[in-house]
């Protein structure tokens, strides 16, 4: 955990934690908004190159999900190995379902 110099009010507790300031969450929020705007703008601009647009959309979605999971669901904090295992396991099966459906139905 990074040391947050702005937070000094009665904040060092028994595990050596400090309270997190709102700043990094506001930054994460602004980052999410920017990613969303890029995704919507890529579609609004439209028509230039579909493959390129699709790649932009997928990259924005992945970055957005990482912000949500890492910062807001605290997965980047220590002691989150088992939660990550559960969720990555779920995502893996979910992704397999998508590949299965697309390949079995249309190939």
């Amino acid at each position: 955990m990074t040391v947050d110099h702005q937070q000094t009010d009665h904040d060092v507790i028994k595990h050596g934690h400090r309270h997190e300031g709102p700043y990094k969450h506001v930054v994460a929020f602004i980052f999410s908004i920017v990613l969303t705007l890029i995704a919507f703008a890529a579609v609004a601009a439209g028509g230039v190159n579909t493959t390129f647009t699709v790649i932009i959309l997928l990259v924005m979605a992945v970055l957005q999900v990482l912000v949500q999971l890492g910062y807001w669901m605290h997965m980047k904090d220590k002691g989150h190995f088992i939660p990550i295992l559960f969720l990555v396991g779920g995502f893996f099966v979910a992704f397999t379902c998508v590949v299965m459906a697309l390949s079995w139905v249309w190939w």
């Binding site: 088992i82 559960f86 969720l87 992704f95």
Partner: peptide, 16 residues
């Protein structure tokens, strides 16, 4: 978190 793993699978099937 285990429940959310299950939820991911459930939404995965609907996305599929």
């Amino acid at each position: 978190w285990l429940f959310l793993g299950g939820e991911s699978v459930l939404f995965g099937t609907l996305f599929a």
